[in-house]
């Protein structure tokens, strides 16, 4: 039996002067912030402001894009994840990701969720069964699919597929879950369900979510970070980060206020 790990208190990020360059173009520069464990942090800002780029730094998915270079320091629970000795493959078992578009693998629901654990070498049927059930339960999908675990994931609705993807990411028992506009391709009801799921998930994981939807950020996050790119010639940067309630009622920066009240973006 795999013990139900709770990472309470684990999964905090500290970013020090982080910048990302693609070739000769600097996409984001000078981002320093603390990401609290077991809380939901929303990254907001107009399109092209580097939210997703910053998110991909946290599980080193930028490494896979070939020409992306990350400078600065990113610490996960005090450990530099960009250290030469740090294996990105190991990092990604601790920092999971849910993508913008539902992207289940072309296989059954069960095999989708069991993919991560199997990758880590878990083979025992009873362990896998337990992990699949727990992950689907946490993704609020267990009740709907428990009788159809052998069903092909592509037969599910878009919202259900996205929750399979959330369950799949949870099955490796990560400390942090990165979500890149996870509801942007879904209908309002599915969006609502995903948001409810997120609220319950922070008991188990730290959540960092990119969203272009400010109401969504206001509804689901504890902390909000506002990013901005003022012109195409300059890199994007972090304007401010703070308690979501404060950010939305009494922002410290004029630009945040202008964005939140809908004057641009």
């Amino acid at each position: 039996m795999v013990t139900a790990q709770s990472h309470a208190g684990k999964g905090s990020f500290d970013l020090h002067d982080v910048s990302v360059t693609y070739g000769s173009e600097t996409a984001i520069a000078g981002v320093s912030m603390h990401i609290e464990p077991n809380a939901v942090t929303a990254l907001i800002g107009p399109s092209g402001c580097g939210k997703s780029t910053l998110l991909r730094c946290l599980n080193r998915m930028n490494d896979e894009l070939g020409n992306a270079k990350v400078a600065g320091r990113i610490l996960l629970d005090g450990v530099d994840v960009y250290d030469k000795e740090y294996d990105p493959v190991e990092l990604r078992t601790k920092v999971g990701q849910v993508f913008q578009k539902p992207n289940p693998f072309p296989m059954t629901i069960y095999d989708n969720v069991a993919y991560g654990p199997r990758t880590q070498g878990i083979r025992k049927r009873s362990d896998l069964d337990a992990l699949v059930e727990r992950s689907l339960t946490r993704a609020a999908l267990w009740g709907e699919v428990k009788k159809d675990l052998k069903k092909h994931a592509f037969e599910l609705s878009g919202g259900q597929q996205q929750r399979v993807c959330i369950a799949r990411a949870l099955a490796t028992e990560p400390e942090v879950l990165l979500m890149d506009e996870p509801a942007s391709s879904l209908d309002p009801i599915s969006t609502q369900q995903i948001e409810d799921t997120i609220a319950e998930l922070k008991e188990y994981v730290t959540i960092v979510i990119v969203t272009h939807n400010m109401q969504q950020a206001a509804r689901i996050s504890d902390k909000t970070a506002f990013m901005l790119r003022e012109s195409m010639e300059e890199p994007a940067f972090l304007v401010e980060v703070g308690e979501t309630r404060t950010m939305f009622t009494n922002p410290g920066d004029k630009r945040t206020e202008a964005y939140i009240t809908g004057r641009f973006g």
């Binding site: 998915m61 990092l91 078992t93 993508f99 992207n103 072309p106 991560g116």
Partner: peptide, 27 residues
């Protein structure tokens, strides 16, 4: 094969080779 399948596998802590032979090649 859509690249977001590869991304999904890599993001789950799979190596490139595992991504290729478990996800990309079968598809």
């Amino acid at each position: 094969i859509p690249s977001d399948l590869r991304q999904a596998s890599l993001a789950l802590g799979a190596t490139r080779w595992r991504t290729i032979y478990r996800i990309v090649l079968p598809a």
